[in-house]
């Protein structure tokens, strides 16, 4: 087993007084893809957003338990959310490119961090877009607006934008649910490309997608982690009855 990069212990999250996560214990090894699945409202997206503290933005949220990234407590009082989010990047359900050129979108994080070297920026743009498997489609109009791209291309540019700040972990919140099947499969291919270099955690509604791309799958229900295992075990030979019911389409 490779070493653990991200661990959560007894993680509870409350929206006001409503308990949305009921004590999650889940650890992630370096590299590879983990899929979080489960019915709507089961807490999988909420859980994902605790991993880079995006839930901080929602008023009335309380979190207890620990989340550790390489042994550092993400919720320590002196934790730097800006630094955390550089190392743990996130891609959202709706592609959200900035209303600037493709080039500017990709290097935005670096440029704000103070990088001015044109050659280096050019290199990062090409590398990131190649990694996100969208380079060939956009290389001839890098300086046109990213909003003119199709949804699937926009999403891959958003992935490239995250890659450009070289995070260690990439969180994806249903990255393909707003896309057509062709774009979805391109995103899947992109993720499979990246799994050797990054730790990828993706929330998905699409069970086939989880079975196609994930090394490990975690099944959530009603704010609890029901089961986590190698993907083929979850799908072929689940340990829990609830998992089997969900996988076989008896509910959800």
């Amino acid at each position: 087993m490779s070493k653990e990069i991200l661990t959560t212990q007894d993680l509870h999250l409350y929206y006001g007084s409503k308990e949305a996560l009921k004590g999650i214990n889940l650890n992630f090894d370096e590299k590879g893809i983990t899929a979080l699945i489960g019915p709507s409202g089961c807490g999988k997206s909420t859980y994902l957003r605790t991993l880079n503290r995006m839930n901080d933005l929602i008023p009335g949220v309380t979190i207890t338990g620990t989340v550790q990234f390489k042994g550092e407590d993400l919720y320590a009082p002196n934790a730097d959310t800006v630094q955390i989010r550089k190392e743990i990047g996130m891609v959202f359900q709706q592609p959200n490119p900035f209303p600037f050129s493709i080039y500017d979108n990709v290097i935005y994080g670096l440029r704000i961090a103070g990088e001015r070297d044109k050659e280096k920026l050019d290199a990062v743009v090409e590398k990131s877009l190649r990694q996100a498997a969208v380079w060939d489609e956009v290389k001839d109009h890098l300086h046109e607006s990213a909003l003119a791209l199709s949804g699937g291309q926009q999403q891959r540019v958003c992935i490239a934008r995250v890659l450009a700040v070289s995070p260690e972990i990439i969180l994806l919140d249903e990255p393909t649910s707003a896309l057509d099947p062709v774009s979805s499969s391109q995103i899947e291919a992109t993720l499979l490309n990246l799994r050797h270099d990054y730790t990828i955690i993706t929330v998905t509604h699409n069970l086939q997608q989880a079975s196609r791309i994930a090394d490990r799958t975690a099944f959530f229900m009603n704010g609890e982690l029901v089961e986590v295992d190698q993907t083929k075990n979850i799908f072929m030979n689940p340990a829990k009855k609830q998992t089997e019911d969900y996988i076989s389409g008896r509910f959800g």
Binding site: M54, L57, F92, N96, Y108, G109
Partner: peptide, 8 residues
């Protein structure tokens, strides 16, 4: 969200 998630 996009900006913040990028570590800005």
């Amino acid at each position: 969200e996009g900006g913040l998630a990028l570590g800005l």
